[in-house]
Design a protein around this nucleic acid. Structure first.
Lengths: 160, 160
DNA sequence: GTATTAATGTAATATTATAACATTTCATTT
DNA sequence: AAATGAAATGTTATAATATTACATTAATAC
């Protein structure tokens, strides 16, 4: 596995090819570890998602995918997305109904997604402290936490 | 304005009528303060939402509202929801595409929504510490935070 | 009372997501 | 390599969520 990615660095202008390669390598390894199949469709959808750091909608993906497979249907995309999300390779941004590639799928992560409403880039950054605080709160409420949606909209360093 | 509501108490079995009354009173006051109009439709939609602590979908609301106004259309509901959200009286739960009444609209609040996946109740609880942690993180990333989606699914004290 | 703005009515449609069932592909066993 | 069973994909249809555009009515300001 290649080295991990630095949260701050990736939000600067960067050689994006590396992100894509990293994501695909991680995907191959994670799927083989889990004994699940990264099929051609799934891999291609992941590539399309990782083409940029902007969240992409399912139907946008469909349009792109159709360029190569004109007979593709929505369910093709949603099935691939379900698989990729279950594998932790892709996350859904609920507040956008759109999807981003996970840059660090190989690490178990506690992250927040920072979404720039100007440039539309969305980055996952580590938020262990936030999670700790949330877990403490849950405990005090006797609430058993299972699945967190944590999305912060705003303006990124470049756009503010 | 009546006394504030205790986070923990509201999640126990309680006399729900109080919640509803509190929400409607707060709504009247907030709207009059802001100089906006809590029309009959808007008030009724808020009442319907506050009927329970379960998040309710726009089309479920429409079905209920149609019992009284059979000619109502989706946009009737979405307009009311937009108004109520802008006034801070209702929140959308993005991970459910559904809506809950805000129990403490009169207080400026930094809250997380705890959603029980068993009983479906959703409660907003104060999460100032979580926000502090998030703001510190934002600052370190030079990210200017504007709008947070913070929804924690799990099991509530009664259902765990 | 008239003008202006806000709210609502009405119709149509856009966007997002899933269900149901048939067929094909892949991996395993024989 | 053929038979089997499970997983993936193909195909059609439809469900669920949300918005646009324009007409009409109601409230507020002058």
């Amino acid at each position: 596995m290649s080295e991990t990615i630095d949260n701050k660095a990736v939000q600067q202008p960067h050689n994006h090819k590396g992100c894509m390669q990293h994501a695909l390598q991680a995907a191959e390894q994670i799927c083989s570890q889990k004994g699940v199949r990264l099929t051609a469709i799934r891999k291609r959808i992941l590539e399309l998602i990782c083409t940029s750091h902007k969240a992409i909608g399912a139907y946008e993906l469909l349009d792109l995918f159709k360029l190569e497979d004109p007979k593709a249907k929505p369910v093709t995309i949603y099935r691939a997305l379900d698989f990729l999300m279950a594998a932790g390779l892709v996350h859904k941004i609920e507040s956008l109904n759109a999807f981003i590639g996970c840059l660090q799928a190989e690490k178990q992560h506690k992250s927040v997604i920072l979404i720039c409403d100007n440039c539309k880039n969305a980055y996952e950054v580590d938020a262990t402290a936030v999670y700790d605080s949330l877990f403490a709160l849950s405990e005090s409420m006797q609430f058993k936490p299972q699945c967190l949606t944590l999305e912060l909209h705003g303006l990124c360093a470049s756009c503010r």
